[in-house]
Design a protein around this nucleic acid. Structure first.
Lengths: 130, 130
DNA sequence: TGAATACTTGAGCAATAATGCAAATAACCG
DNA sequence: CGGTTATTTGCATTATTGCTCAAGTATTCA
């Protein structure tokens, strides 16, 4: 449970590199000024994670479809021309991230969007592209 | 040139899978209705590609930094605590996607944002997170 | 011209992630 | 119960990606 994947691999982010130019800074005040404005690493990671959700076309299509209708896994797979397994894997991921929720009706699992923000973000960029 | 990477792997998207439920559709009219609204595969791929740019913390930090100041590769690397090479690789990618531009001054290459939309999108999500 | 510096680039490695397959779970029905 | 169906899940495979290393290019300066 709670194995929310799609985690951006935090890590180094500030590991003294010896691959740096000798002078260290070409324009130190400018660098310092920007450094002071840099968001915290944790914030950066959260932002990247949000974008990562929509960085895969399968997930984009799933989220788009669910923004239009509540669908069971089977219909979603048929709609997208994907295997049930592939869809279920992605749904688990989205479930762990609390982006979708589901409702059990007999053996069917009806999925819908849980978090409005992501769908909102998707449609925003979608309109921009079209 | 023009080897714009970060391409989402288009592919199948509509390959008759035998892994589909027997009935084919639980709720055919609903599936058809959503199918009719589905954006074209090409559109979906473009959207995913846009999100993909910001799905990595290093690129998020680079784009944030460049949204604050024009910086040479060396200062950018120092600012982010990354190797020059790592930064340069990401800059090439962003260059190929026309998201950043650069200005040569002697041996220094000063990078800045070329496309406002991506920086805009980043700041939007950033504010939402903070 | 030659050394040094700033950056770019190609190859390759290690980590991630998307999907398929097969087994497991769960609900329904005879 | 036993069989069928809908979905989930673990594992394996393959593809992608971010980074390092080392070599290459270009520009400045002595």
């Amino acid at each position: 449970m709670a194995e929310a994947n799609l985690k951006v691999v935090s890590e180094p982010i500030a590991k003294a590199q010896d691959d740096v130019c000798e002078i260290l800074y070409v324009d130190e005040p400018r660098v310092k000024a920007v450094a002071a404005q840099m968001p915290a690493d944790e914030t950066i990671r959260q932002v990247a994670n949000i974008f990562k959700v929509l960085s895969d076309p399968t997930r984009v299509r799933i989220i788009f479809a669910l923004s239009r209708a509540e669908l069971c896994v089977c219909d979603l797979a048929a709609l997208l021309g994907l295997s049930i397994s592939a869809v279920s894997h992605q749904l688990r991921l989205l479930r762990n991230l609390r982006l979708v929720k589901y409702r059990k009706e007999g053996r069917l699992a009806y999925y819908s969007l849980d978090d409005d923000h992501t769908g909102q973000l998707l449609h925003e960029v979608l309109e921009h592209v079209q």
